[in-house]
Design a protein around this nucleic acid. Structure first.
Lengths: 77, 77
DNA sequence: CTATATTTGTGCGTATGTATG
DNA sequence: ACATACATACGCACAAATATA
């Protein structure tokens, strides 16, 4: 699923997987994406890497993070 | 007591101290070990570190945690 | 039944150190 | 020097489970 030896950095690969789930409707607007801890377990990456992936999703305008609550899928514009 | 500059991670050091107390009979089977908050105060560590220490003790099969109740010393095998 | 206190569970924010390419 | 990635450790806030008044 995630290839540490791949062309793209691990955090981008993780971001892409989550973005694809949003695109597919697997993750829906106003609902949280998996927590950082969940991403760590699912993808087998460090927490810093999971956070970096979520940061990418924020920069893409796909999600918004509420401190202490979670990161939520934004409605499509 | 706990050496942040030591060879072992703080959470392992804390786990070792508690394990020693169980070994010595200071903490007895079917009775709770100190709460996370108590460990935080006693050892001067963050709660996450205290939780990590308890996690280690669970992995060693020394204790079992019941949500909302506490973490209890298991009877020796 | 309600309210409060305690304890564990979860979530994010941040910083530091180490290692690798 | 820099980016990537992991591990450790600090902090805060709120939710869930449990026990008790």
């Amino acid at each position: 699923m995630i290839d540490p030896e791949g062309m793209l950095p691990v955090y981008v690969q993780v971001a892409d997987v989550i973005a694809a789930r949003i695109e597919r409707g697997d993750l829906v607007p106003n609902r949280p994406i998996p927590s950082e801890t969940a991403l760590v377990q699912e993808f087998g990456v460090a927490r810093g890497t999971a956070r970096h992936a979520v940061e990418v999703l924020r920069e893409r305008g796909l999600v918004a993070t509420i401190p202490g609550r979670g990161t939520f899928v934004l409605p499509p514009k």
